[in-house]
């Protein structure tokens, strides 16, 4: 609350407008929220997906900003820990299940032949990181033994995994992936030892490994794009901790020259005033906007190019925020999903 008061007057109220709220009454803890395009009876709509530890629900929009639950998939054996959005894909929800690490990746879908909801197993093992790619593909990194495996699988409309191929793995463990926007075959990843790697997904080649630098600790890549011969990467620092040289970093926009493997910081987004010190950030990036839940239960929004916080959403009367994700666009406006542990999800227009 103190931090919100330190923002320019009216910023909080003007930046995020509550549009609607939905409440999942699942008995277990809410773990993730996302959006998916879903087509039924010839009508294609942007739907919301909510995940609890033991179930995943699909919600379709109704008039007057209300939501109706379409279906709930039950997943009793292993807890759900993450939704893996599949860009440009309709009628498919991809989820990760596990304890501390991903043990399974499953697809949730509605079978077009029988019109029945079902699920199918895509991968199992000790998976460190996974990302849904454009063109109905999924990349994941795992370490079944000493050697790391980075694998891309194509998914069919019926949920089966089709041909898969491997990418040349770096020695360091890959902890996050991001597609390079505008370049279909370029993929980047960040590693546990502060490196950024670039692959050619088509050929499986590892093109470059570049050190991010210790000024940018434990980076998780969220978004990458190429512009004027440079590779720009938005990274977050989940374990944000105040340091003398960099303050309290939350997100950085970094620029790399892949030709020379040199890089530098372009803009830095720090924790808002009143939220310094050790933090755990759970964040998401869309375009130039970043959002994260701070340890205090407040959601903060940053403009990565400006490098400062533009909105704060303090905990409400019902409690702290636990999750936040940017929604896929259904219009020109940007929508932020904000979830609480009890399954309440609020949609805010930014």
């Amino acid at each position: 609350h103190q931090a919100a008061e330190q923002l320019p007057a009216g910023l909080r109220e003007e930046s995020l407008q509550l549009v609607s709220e939905l409440k999942d009454s699942c008995s277990s803890c809410a773990v993730d929220v996302s959006t998916v395009w879903w087509e039924a009876a010839g009508c294609r709509e942007l739907c919301v997906v909510t995940a609890c530890e033991s179930s995943v629900s699909l919600w379709k929009p109704l008039p007057s900003d209300c939501w109706s639950k379409v279906h709930t998939w039950q997943l009793a054996e292993i807890p759900v820990i993450q939704i893996l959005p599949l860009p440009d894909t309709c009628n498919l929800v991809c989820i990760a299940l596990g304890e501390l690490e991903i043990a399974e990746i499953r697809l949730l879908l509605c079978s077009p032949e029988t019109d029945s909801f079902r699920q199918s197993l895509v991968r199992s093992g000790t998976i460190k990181a996974a990302l849904g790619l454009r063109g109905r593909r999924l990349v994941s990194s795992s370490r079944p033994g000493q050697e790391q495996q980075v694998e891309v699988v194509s998914l069919s409309e019926t949920g089966r995994s089709k041909d898969g191929h491997t990418l040349l793995p770096p020695e360091e463990t890959v902890v996050a992936f991001a597609e390079v926007e505008g370049m279909r075959d370029a993929l980047v990843g960040t590693t546990a030892l502060n490196s950024l790697v670039i692959w050619n997904v088509q050929t499986g080649q590892l093109l470059r490994k570049m050190h991010v630098g210790y000024s940018y600790p434990a980076p998780i890549c969220h978004r990458a794009y190429s512009d004027s011969g440079l590779l720009f990467v938005a990274v977050s620092h989940p374990h944000g901790e105040e340091s003398e040289c960099s303050g309290s970093p939350a997100f950085h926009l970094l620029a790399f020259n892949p030709s020379t493997a040199r890089g530098k910081g372009v803009a830095s987004s720090s924790l808002p005033a009143g939220h310094t010190g050790r933090q755990y950030l759970e964040g998401d990036v869309k375009d130039t906007l970043a959002a994260a839940v701070l340890s205090s239960g407040t959601i903060a929004v940053w403009d990565l190019l400006l490098g400062h916080c533009t909105a704060l959403l303090p905990p409400g009367p019902a409690g702290s925020w636990a999750l936040t994700r940017w929604a896929s666009s259904s219009s020109t406006s940007t929508c932020l999903l904000a979830g609480q542990r009890d399954g309440t999800v609020c949609l805010y227009r930014y």
Binding site: L168, M183, N200, T203, L207, G229, L231, F256, N257, K264
Partner: peptide, 23 residues
């Protein structure tokens, strides 16, 4: 960001690195 910071920039970096990297 400029070439003085990051070295010579190539617009075709992806194709060039793909041609150089081991298969």
């Amino acid at each position: 960001c400029s070439e003085s910071d990051l070295g010579p920039i190539s617009l075709n970096w992806f194709e060039e690195l793909s041609a150089e990297a081991p298969p």
